[in-house]
Design a protein around this nucleic acid. Structure first.
Length: 539
DNA sequence: AGCGATACTA
């Protein structure tokens, strides 16, 4: 792949940069790396640097690979550190950016004015206020507080998750109050729900650019104020794909999926090109309303658009859409065609198959995944355990539960316990299911007890059912934090439907005392809802 | 030296 042309340096350089440009996915990246090793470029620092830059920045979803390569560099310079921190900050796991920064300090590499904006961005994404404050301290200590970029990112951090007063003070003290810090502050106020302050800032801006408008539109859209958003959208002097995306995402967020799709049509008819973000919103809308037809159309639009391969995240969204729209076959087809996969891709199909009752295939895929050395995560095991539960494979399920804990060192969460109770309960091993709940290391929630209750009913075990019922009522009696907690989790993620669900759970105290479990549904649909109805996450 | 700040996804 790489041919040496010792007499022509400029061609060589050009050729290399075009080579890196052709690197658009993990496979290509690995190929280039391999040929670097073969051709002896592996000790060439500038080649390594480009490789890492490519993995960390140019291609999405390849940051892990960049990490692997980076770990072998004995003395990375600031450019490499910064590139890795930057790439990690914008990845799924921004925590790595902070870890890298710590490593950097421990190795006595001196952070520079490029380093801090990236670390601060990671802190913002993580909403890690304490760490962000600490980094702010470092900024001061290293003397970068007056650097425009660093300062603007500090404003961005404090405005979005820290102290709005600090953000305002930093902004007021700025020598240059141009659009960037102004918009950052505005976005912060909007995100904190202070739309009136945000709007005032927006109106007072001496100069507005496209981003300022997008900030305000997004602010309204995220708070569900779609009328106000729409008003600004109609006023805006110029639109770009982000403007459209903000509107579409806003409609999806408040459940107006039809509006979102309509917006998409309008966008296309006006000649604005949708991008990955657009498609992700739309796919999630389709998955939400279970609209297979439109989902399919989005998928084919995607195939027409894409010059190369779909990104992993987009592929996962397509799989998820098909899976949630009930077409597990198509989900599998897309999965099989996908060249680069990550855990989420596997999770979607393993979970989808399990949910649709294809237990055997689900477990087989899990085995295949392990064979290919893809590390399963906690979500994977929810799928696998559901598959075992469906198929009544008690021993296998127990085995996987232990595999998760012992081999992969994943602490079981409430969903895993729910699966196990369902597994044991369905098989009629009720006493053990009961003991299982009692021995849980985390507090059981109502869904777990209701699952057991349902099993007791199916198997006609009145005595245990009564005890489970008591626990359920107890939980309600002391207004256990569980409901509040669960409902908070839902609310913080904007899943209002989930909140309603919890409210409903709280309302119907489940069961009447003497009636045993007569009011409990026989099927476990609420458990399945609990297990699968959250958005897929990769990590 | 080369990388950098605000908006849309998760």
């Amino acid at each position: 792949m790489i041919r040496k042309r010792p007499n022509d340096r400029s061609t060589n350089r050009q050729q290399r940069s075009s080579l890196w440009q052709k690197c658009t996915n993990l496979r290509a990246l690995k190929q280039v790396h391999a040929s670097m090793v073969v051709n002896g470029f592996n000790s060439n620092y500038s080649a390594i640097r480009e490789l890492i830059f490519c993995g960390a920045m140019a291609i999405s979803g390849t940051i892990d690979y960049a990490h692997q390569v980076f770990d072998h560099v004995s003395e990375p310079d600031n450019f490499l550190w910064n590139t890795m921190i930057r790439g990690s900050a914008q990845s799924q796991c921004p925590l790595n950016a902070v870890l890298l920064y710590t490593r950097m300090e421990n190795r006595h590499a001196r952070p520079d004015d490029f380093t801090f904006p990236f670390v601060l961005k990671a802190c913002t994404k993580l909403s890690w206020v304490k760490m962000g404050m600490g980094i702010h301290g470092k900024v001061v200590r290293f003397g970068f507080e007056s650097n425009t970029f660093v300062r603007n990112t500090l404003i961005y951090f404090h405005a979005n998750c820290g102290d709005l007063r600090i953000a305002s003070a930093l902004f007021d003290d700025s020598a240059k109050r141009d659009v960037v810090p102004w918009s950052a502050l505005t976005a912060g106020y909007a995100r904190r729900g202070k739309l009136d302050v945000a709007r005032r800032l927006f109106d007072e801006m001496p100069f507005k650019d496209l981003v300022s408008w997008n900030v305000m539109i997004t602010g309204y859209a995220k708070q569900g104020e779609m009328e106000s958003a729409r008003k600004l959208f109609d006023e805006v002097p110029k639109r770009d794909v982000v403007t459209w995306n903000a509107m579409i995402a806003g409609y999806v967020l408040c459940g107006s999926n039809e509006q979102a799709l309509q917006m998409f049509e309008e966008m296309r008819s006006l000649g604005e090109k949708p991008d990955e973000v657009t498609m992700l919103s739309l796919l999630s809308a389709c998955a939400d309303i279970g609209d297979l037809d439109v989902g399919q159309k989005i998928h084919s639009a995607l195939l027409e658009m894409g010059s190369g391969d779909m990104s992993i995240i987009l592929g996962n969204a397509v799989i998820d859409m098909y899976s949630k729209c009930g077409s597990i076959e198509r989900a599998l087809e897309v999965f099989r065609r996908m060249r680069d996969k990550d855990v989420s891709s596997w999770n979607s199909v393993i979970g989808g198959l399990a949910f649709h009752g294809h237990s055997e295939e689900s477990v087989n895929l899990f085995k295949e995944m392990r064979r290919l050395k893809v590390r399963p995560n906690e979500i994977t095991f929810v799928g696998v355990l559901v598959a075992c539960s469906h198929a009544g494979k008690v021993e296998e399920g127990r085995g996987y539960f232990n595999l998760m804990r012992i081999v992969y060192r994943i602490e079981p969460n409430i969903k895993h316990y729910g699966c196990m109770v369902d597994l044991l309960g369905r098989a009629g091993i009720l006493n053990e299911a009961f003991e299982f709940i009692e021995k849980m290391e985390i507090a059981p929630n109502a869904i777990v007890w209701r699952t057991l209750l349902g099993a007791c009913r199916v198997h006609g075990n009145v005595e245990l059912g009564r005890r489970a019922n008591e626990r359920l009522l107890e939980m309600r009696r002391d207004e256990s934090g569980d409901f509040v907690l669960l409902s908070n989790i839902y609310a913080s993620r904007g899943e209002w439907q989930g909140v309603e669900e919890v409210r409903k759970l709280m309302d119907d105290s489940g069961v009447k005392k003497e009636a045993g479990c007569s009011l409990v549904e026989a099927d476990n649909s609420s458990l399945m809802h609990f297990l699968f109805d959250s958005k897929p996450k990769s990590r």
